[in-house]
Design a protein around this nucleic acid. Structure first.
Lengths: 223, 223, 223, 223
DNA sequence: CATGAATGAGAATTCATTCAT
DNA sequence: GATGAATGAATTCTCATTCAT
């Protein structure tokens, strides 16, 4: 059992699993999980610490045992989840696939995230992404690391002759990640409606489409 | 027509009018202008009504003569400025230029907006976009109108044979507006640094680059 | 009518005695007065801001209109009352009387203070005097000014040949003010009981006795 | 008998005892010692039980094994240290010296206390004296016992013809103890600065000076 | 004895909004 | 219209104390 993801398998497996260490991790994780739900529902400012505590099923004050204050909860939500996400991206980027495949994999992951953990994505998109004002450069740098990964793909593709050399990698990042950001924001805000049960296909197709436009552009080509 | 100030000059033509209608508009406009600055600095939630009043140079009780409450200030900021911006976009879209030119014009306007009115763009990007949760569908629809304009360009381009017909206009919108949104966010957050005095060229070039990638993609083409 | 200062002289002159300016001052003064009572009853830490507001007959939040926080109330209580007291002392010291008379006048004032404003003296003795930890050097200096006055009397007395020249003025201050401080603390703590109605004589006699011991000492003298 | 450590050395004679009685006493003493430091630094109200525990190097739940609550810690600090101090004073008073010598010995002890245990004196002067309001009459009576000792010296001196018979012993106490209290407060607050290394002489001289003024007064005598 | 997680009452402070002038 | 004093609900955060292990 790996603490830090204790949530999903908590009281399971065997009985009385290391009640102490486990419990401790459990409470902290439960608070984060609860915070994500509450932030997603009411927004950071609309969320009361007491809401989080109630949702987590713990006493009010315990929140302050694990977190200095409300802001730190949001920061932790971000840090701990983002680094996981970034790890996956880095693995993809470091892999042997073509640029095309890597981009599609990243697009798929991002779009899928909303299907798997909509609340977490909501918080990321609506609360964290837009609240950089409050945060340390640390957080900005963390986001920058995603840009860095995409830029790496682009540069590698350019060197391999797969991608145009006259495109500024930063602009490419804006186009690629911007498209995904907006697509996901659209999902978060409920602007894009998907028929129930069609989510998986929808996201896969959306990923392909975004990558397709990114790679080939929308301009019609002369025969 | 210069959007962004459409509202304020309505009844102000004659000089020294009965000090009434004009004053009224004047105060109201000053409050909005002040609100933009304060929201940009501290965020919507971090901004106090008294801050806005002080910035506007008026007693803060007066704010409630012109606006029902704080939320309505934000709403007005959005509505009055956004409609101006949208008007410009609609004018462009309705014009006779090619799809390519229209897209470049829109990209230029959006990127320039940050240079001309950085605070207003900050508020739009960081506060309004994010707070859609709280707001009426009205606001979402207003944003949707921008998408609509871009989609219209895309569809027209497809019909004219300028643009690929196998691209979903919505996906195209995501790519185009997402790129601009991210470029602007990057400017807002200070991630993109521009040498002083180079802003105009920078924005123009960025607009061209974004449109270039959007139209032709990043993939290298076989000769 | 000049708004912005309408308050102070608005509808005034006489009747309805400066309802506005007066009210304003009144509220602030009422808060201070209430604070003195509450601090005297429960101590600074035991006093809730809501207690003070209730005692003053005003709304909770208004306290924060006039004072930044609870600590500032205590500070204001001290500053505004202490300077008044110090003024009286300075007047005495600057007067033409003998050292003996001046000391007796000061002793009388200090001891009388408890009779006239017991709550204020309680707060001074129990809350302010001992809480220098929290306070700025400002407050310490203010107390120092009282020492300075007494030291001045002593030095003048020494120069005039009334007082011994071999006594360090600082030690003299400790003896004189220490005696009064303890006498008053004793009254505050209820250790010294006075029969009802005898207060005036008691304090007068106590003042004389303290000064007598201070001047002549307790040692018996050889004939 | 050296008061002040009566408690701690009771059952500790043998080495490595059953780790029980001794430990118990040890921990308790460590808590008190820690409390003195923390109270001196932050004041009673500013001190957290967890601060005390940390300073004592124990888990903070353990504090509640030894003390009912925070208030009881302060009470114990007072009772156990004060009774030791009082014992010394009583020994002096019961001794055969002259009034003059006894007073000087007491003055020396009090002033020295600050040199030897400044934190303990700070707590006594700033926290305990002030909090008499909250405490049981017990504590007030304990302080009264010091007055009693001084009054005893005065009365004995009066009977022996060493001291003036027309001085109220209570007033004499106020003068004598008040002077020492103020001298010590002045040290505690850092108003009196002493050159490093000069402390011992300084305190001895201060003791002599206070007693000198107390006995002979400040008034110049006719030849 | 020892630990420190857990509890929750309590208090300070903020600030949008109202309202008398 | 204009002012800013007045209101008080709402919320965060603290910390003494308890308790399961």
């Amino acid at each position: 059992m790996t603490p830090g993801r204790a949530v999903s398998t908590a009281t399971t497996d065997r009985s009385e699993p290391r009640e102490n260490g486990a419990e401790r991790v459990d409470k902290r994780a439960r608070i984060l999980e609860a915070a994500i739900h509450v932030f997603a529902r009411h927004g950071y400012h609309g969320a009361r610490v007491s809401d989080i505590a109630r949702e987590a099923g713990i006493a009010y004050g315990l929140v302050y045992h694990y977190f200095r204050n409300k802001e730190e909860i949001l920061a932790s939500v971000f840090e701990e989840r983002w680094s996981g996400f970034l790890g996956v991206v880095e693995t993809i980027v470091a892999g042997p696939s073509t640029s095309h495949e890597k981009l599609e994999a990243i697009a798929a992951i991002i779009l899928n995230a909303f299907r798997v953990r909509p609340d977490w994505v909501k918080v990321l998109v609506l609360e964290i992404q837009r609240s950089s004002r409050f945060s340390d450069p640390e957080r900005i740098r963390a986001v920058g690391r995603l840009f860095e990964q995409v830029a790496r793909i682009v540069r590698a593709g350019q060197e391999a002759g797969e991608l145009r050399r006259d495109v500024d990698p930063q602009v490419a990042c804006f186009v690629f990640l911007g498209a995904l950001d907006l697509a996901i924001t659209s999902l978060v805000l409920g602007l894009t409606k998907i028929d129930g049960g069609q989510e998986i296909e929808y996201h896969a197709r959306a990923a392909r489409n975004v990558v397709d436009v990114f790679l080939r552009g929308v301009e019609a080509r002369q025969a």
